[in-house]
Write a protein that binds this DNA or RNA. Sequence first.
DNA 1: CCGCATCCAGGCGGATACTG
DNA 2: CAGTATCCGCCTGGATGCGG
Lengths: 105, 105
Amino acid sequence: MEMNQLNSSYIGAEYTMSIISGKWKPLIIYHLRQGTKRYGQIKRLVPDASPKVLIQQLKELEHDGIINRKSYPEVPPKVEYSVTAKGRSLYPVLDLLWFWSHQKL
Amino acid sequence: MEMNQLNSSYIGAEYTMSIISGKWKPLIIYHLRQGTKRYGQIKRLVPDASPKVLIQQLKELEHDGIINRKSYPEVPPKVEYSVTAKGRSLYPVLDLLWFWSHQKL
DNA sequence: CCGCATCCAGGCGGATACTG
DNA sequence: CAGTATCCGCCTGGATGCGG
């Protein structure tokens, strides 16, 4: 499928946006892009997100197959988040969105 | 400014999305991409949008400099909408969003 | 340490009827 | 023809306190 032809409309663009358009999702993905992180680390990197919302966004990203959650059966608990292959395929999209916003026209 | 370096975080990606993430905006831009259109034509091309919401989306796109509104002082009224240069610079973004959603992983 | 439960507020979009 | 006006439901995200 070639991009230059037959984007029959932009149906589907909304789908992509629905996946990355949570309040903290781009930031979460950005930080996880630097490498696997524990929940507490993410919490500190995104301090303005309340725990409820942060968990919510992580769950949605996990549900959409963008990130992976790995829980270790330890005490105290340890949970690691990392970006999946599908998630990595989003990098060019987020890069372009970022780039457009910083462009002078 | 190069895209491959220093996207200091993804701050800004949200801005781009806020511009194109109205319910009918991608579809509106898609249709206007084919050429200048009158309000009534857009209304027929996007029939599921109520007049209120359609106008609202057009106004926001205009306010953000994505489309241009040209009103002719005639009776009956005639209004034409077209995509601006800034709006055209969004095409690659929307194309990529569309492409990602149709990708098999 | 890593969450979940509850309550709440603001904004977006839908339905319908009306106007210069 | 090209919009306005009004009312209203839903969903996202925020605040706060509790639990395994």
